[in-house]
């Protein structure tokens, strides 16, 4: 399971400090996420496109990702302009409401701007660096430990799951709408849980043998460079500008 599709590259964005990127992505999500001003949404989208281009990521993978995450947006385009009105005697009719299309448009721009920023800024960090960045930003220690363990064993368990699946197929299992299928899938899911439980026991015992006392030492330390300060300060100023635009600009109608 290779998950970090966009994490490796030689662009300027890849080289930035993960802490700077994490803070910038959070700030952008909040400022653009809660805005209802059309100029803020468009400006946010432009900024996201610029950063995404600067990250020099593979086009095909980006396109696939964009299609996958826009499923909910498509659902909204289909549903928002319609309202179901049920009259007396269960007579119902669909009422078209053009305001729904405006709303769907706003959601589309907002969601895609944020998706692009998440890919450009967080997708370009290897996940373990991101967790270390969280630790260096003083996120709760236990939470960081959870992240590190979770991600470490996610791959192991996914391999186990894959193996169980293969074994089922090798024995001629064909899913259908019947009790046998449900029972088999329940056992598959149950077996994944049993395997994770057993592995957790072994991992913990091995950690105790090596003197684990509740402290998980961080080995990755980042060097904050001048370009990180420049990036973050420029970004914060842009966000302040967007926030001001949001307060005084005209709302999306």
């Amino acid at each position: 399971m290779h998950l970090e599709t966009f994490a490796h590259g030689d662009s300027l964005i890849h080289a930035l400090d993960p802490r700077a990127k994490l803070l910038a992505a959070l700030l952008f999500s909040v400022v653009v996420g809660i805005s209802t001003t059309s100029s803020v949404l468009w400006a946010g989208l432009c900024l996201a496109v610029v950063l995404l281009l600067a990250a020099k990521l593979p086009w095909l993978a980006l396109l696939k990702r964009a299609l996958a995450v826009n499923a909910f947006v498509v659902f909204l385009w289909l549903v928002l302009p319609w309202r179901l009105e049920v009259g007396p005697g269960l007579a119902w009719n669909l009422v078209f409401d053009p305001r729904g299309l405006h709303l769907a448009g706003a959601v589309t721009i907002k969601a895609n701007a944020i998706i692009m920023i998440l890919i450009a800024l967080l997708g370009t960090c290897p996940i373990n660096n991101l967790f270390h960045a969280l630790a260096h930003l003083h996120a709760p220690r236990k939470l960081v430990h959870l992240f590190l363990f979770f991600y470490r064993y996610l791959h192991v368990l996914h391999r186990e799951y894959h193996r169980l699946n293969l074994a089922m197929r090798a024995r001629g299992f064909r899913p259908g709408n019947n009790a046998h299928t449900y029972r088999t899938y329940a056992q598959l899911a149950g077996m994944v849980l049993v395997k994770s439980y057993d592995r957790a026991e072994r991992v913990y015992q091995a950690m105790l043998c090596r003197g684990f006392s509740g402290e998980y030492w961080l080995l990755d330390h980042f060097a904050w460079k001048r370009r990180d300060s420049m990036f973050l300060s420029t970004f914060v100023m842009l966000m302040a500008g967007l926030a001001a635009l949001g307060i005084w600009g005209s709302p999306w109608n």
Binding site: F150, L154, V192, L193, S196
Partner: peptide, 11 residues
């Protein structure tokens, strides 16, 4: 907890 959570994610 972390490893079980990963198990649930996979399941």
């Amino acid at each position: 907890t972390a490893i079980l959570a990963a198990g649930f994610f996979v399941a």
